[in-house]
Every structure is written in C-alpha cells, then in structure tokens.
Design a protein around this nucleic acid. Structure first.
Lengths: 134, 134
DNA sequence: CTTGACGTTCCTGTCACTGGAACCCCCATA
DNA sequence: TATGGGGGTTCCAGTGACAGGAACGTCAAG
C-alpha cells in the first residue's frame, strides 16, 4: 500500500503518517522506487494510534500503548494505569474549562453588548479576581 | 518598578513579561542602566492580560481586548462579541473532552487491570470506533 | 512525449512560553 | 579595594504535534 491508501484507511493525513515514521512510531518498508510500502500491520498500528490520539493520549502515551499492544505478555494493569492517569488529566481539564466557562458566562451575561463603552467584561478583567485574597 | 516587583504584583513570571514586551503587548520605558522601568499602567495591563489568559483567551484575543480596554470610545458589543466567540470555543472543547472522558471511562471500567494480558482497553483501541459507519 | 497525480525530502511556522548560557549592574561586607 | 550575591540584560534552543510549501522524482494514461 502507498501512503495515500493507508492515509484514507487509517483516517490520518499523509503528513501525519510521515511524521509518525520520523519519530519512530512505525517503520514501513520501502519499495525500489523509494516509496513507502505499508504492510497491514503498519495500517493497524496507525489506526490504533489514531484512535488513541482521538481519545487525547499524547504521542508519548501512544508509544507506550503501542508497546503494550505488541507485547503479548503485557499485564492489563499496566494499560489500565496509563488510561486512568490520562482519564484523571481529562477530568482535571474539564474542571478547569468549566471554571473558565462559568466566569466568562457571568461576565458575558452582565454585558449589554451595545454601542456604549461601559462594559462589565472589561471591568471584570481589570479588577483582581474575587477570591484572590489567598 | 523593576521586573521582579511587577512579576510578583501581576502574578506572572519575569520571562513571560519580557515575552509580552517582545511581542508588543506592553512598552515599558528603560532606566539609564538598561533595566525595564515599569509604570503603574504597565502593571495594570499585565494584570489584565494575565486574567484574560487565565480565562483562556489567546494572545491575539488579549491584544484585541487590551485595545478595547484602552479605547474609551469602544462599543461594549465588540467586547461581548469577542467574549461570546471564546465562550463558544470553550464549550465546544468541554463537549469534546466529555466525549473522550465517557469513552475512556467505559474502557477503563471494563478492564480488570490485573497481571493477565487480556485487555478491553487495547481491544477497544484496535477496533473501529462504534458509530464509524457514517 | 507530455501531462497530471502521486510520491519524496527538507525547511519553516505554529503557540506561548521555558530553560539556559553568557554577560552586566548594584550594593554590602571583609 | 576586592568580592560575593542577587538582581538585571540579550540571545538561542526546545517544547508538541503536526501543517504548509518548495523543489524535485516517479508512474500510468492518452
């Protein structure tokens, strides 16, 4: 398989696949003409990584997941530990974003949004955050 | 004021403040010895930007907010439009993260996390996502 | 033989900083 | 007067995960 076919099958841009080879996530063979010649196993790995990325795993984590995936003697506990760590990070990010959302929604709601200069949003940004005393 | 004092007051690292000068967010004067000499107005701007950044606004957005902040003839509608756009992005990000969280939580829950190699998490990552048919 | 779609490498840019090296300035103390 | 330490300065490189684009090679069809 050439790169375009694999890209379509794995749902990844060709650029990304070349990048993944660059950093050693996959090692496709080469045809005589110099083109990358992907095996089924390469495609599977790419799709695997694509799905892991879409769940927010970093490249480093994907590398570890891939190693576990290929290791038939792995312990599922190791996989779970990785996933739980990531899940905790996702949840922390959600909490952070929800705090931002709440504050910003308050400010937006207080602002008339008309042609006049008076603006609670700018006032809010120009004053110390409430609860900043600690 | 020297940079350390401003950094403390604004709650930003000195490195960040130098960077903000680099990209033109602030233009502090210089003392004869070459040190940055911050005015109160510089401090206010830095604190303003710091708070906007903590609400997730990008530097580009902060620059626009700062311009509106300094423009006494601004329309609050312009500020609100910026804030609403950003709020929409935050909410979209939250939705995305919640989807990740749900999928990942399912996988984690299905995994025993023991010493054996059988692992629903890896199985989930190695199979097409359900609902991928469209 | 040409054309156009594919493939290749390599370099640069993104975003918002952070770390570090190499150097300068100021004040206090021995 | 030397020196030591804690400021300050500039500039360069690295981060993460690619994306854009230039310049060039390859292949199949007409």
């Amino acid at each position: 398989m050439n790169i375009a076919e694999v890209a379509k099958a794995a749902g990844l841009p060709a650029k990304t696949i070349r990048y993944y080879e660059d950093i050693g996530l996959i090692q496709p063979k080469r045809s005589e003409n110099g083109y990358r010649a992907f095996a089924e196993s390469d495609l599977h790995k790419l799709a695997f990584v694509g799905r892991a990325r879409s769940l927010g795993f970093s490249i480093v984590e994907c590398r570890a997941l891939l190693a576990l995936y290929e290791d038939r003697a792995r312990a599922s506990g190791d996989v779970k530990a990785l996933a739980v760590t990531h899940l905790v990070q996702i949840r922390a990010k959600i909490v952070e974003l929800r705090a931002m959302e709440a504050t910003l929604a308050d400010l937006v709601q207080a602002c008339n949004g008309d042609h006049r200069p008076d603006c609670p949003i700018l006032r809010g940004l120009s004053q110390p955050v409430s609860g900043d005393s600690q």
